[in-house]
């Protein structure tokens, strides 16, 4: 099969969330010869279609996540993580508020942002405000994405956003999670708010002018 045919198969496998199909494709020798950016372009295109279906309620969240899983699998197999994703090469630092232990939502948002062409760096849990500020200083992301599931973490979100705005005014901040709504996001000083993973992509694009 030629490159164009393989790229179409990759795009379709990601769109339909067919993990087995992507594993089969990834083991084909021809795929190893296709430049990484070309594969990422096909992956991003498949994810874009899946995201549109989710937005239009044609795909459920789990079906969409199967697409994300498929995307992650070929990125892992073909060692594409951190490679150029076409014209979007923005870095997003993502984490949960200090004291927060729930990170499933954060991981989903991170995976979807990555599948949408962002370079995502995950801070994992248990990061204090100062550790996050250090990470921003070192990694120089364009965007910080922060989530909180429980209301007890809101003071930590507010404190972190306050210091990010003071020390790194060029960094845009989006917040989300069960404990946060658009009014609260504005009140803590965040530049944007996302209700879900798809919303996070739209908000990141808006804030970064993409």
């Amino acid at each position: 099969m030629n490159d164009a045919g393989l790229l179409i198969k990759i795009k379709e496998a990601v769109y339909s969330g067919n993990l087995q199909e992507i594993r089969n494709i990834a083991t084909e020798q021809e795929v190893q010869l296709i430049p990484g950016p070309k594969i990422l372009e096909a992956l991003t295109s498949g994810m874009g279609m899946a995201g549109t279906d989710l937005y239009k309620n044609l795909k459920s969240v789990p079906e969409f996540l199967f697409s994300v899983d498929t995307f992650r699998e070929i990125v892992r197999i073909c060692n594409l993580k951190g490679k150029s994703c076409g014209d979007n090469n923005k870095t997003v630092l993502i984490g949960v508020a200090e004291g927060e232990v729930h990170d499933l939502g954060k991981n989903i948002v991170g995976a979807v942002l990555e599948a949408s062409g962002f370079n995502v760096i995950d801070m994992e849990c248990s990061k204090t405000r100062d550790m996050m500020l250090d990470e921003i200083g070192n990694l120089k992301p364009e965007l910080l994405a922060l989530s909180a599931m429980m209301s007890t973490c809101i003071p930590a979100v507010k404190d972190t956003v306050l210091w990010v705005n003071r020390m790194y005014p060029q960094v845009k901040v989006i917040v989300g999670g069960a404990a946060i709504d658009p009014d609260l996001a504005a009140a803590v000083g965040a530049h944007g708010y996302a209700e879900n993973a798809n919303g996070a992509v739209n908000e990141a694009n808006r804030l970064l002018g993409l």
């Binding site: 993990l19 996540l65 199967f66 899983d69």
Partner: peptide, 17 residues
């Protein structure tokens, strides 16, 4: 279990959660 599944599949992790 949730942590392990999250690394493998977010869809599965969602079901586990």
């Amino acid at each position: 279990l949730l942590k392990t599944r999250m690394e493998k599949s977010l869809a599965e992790a969602l079901f586990i959660d």
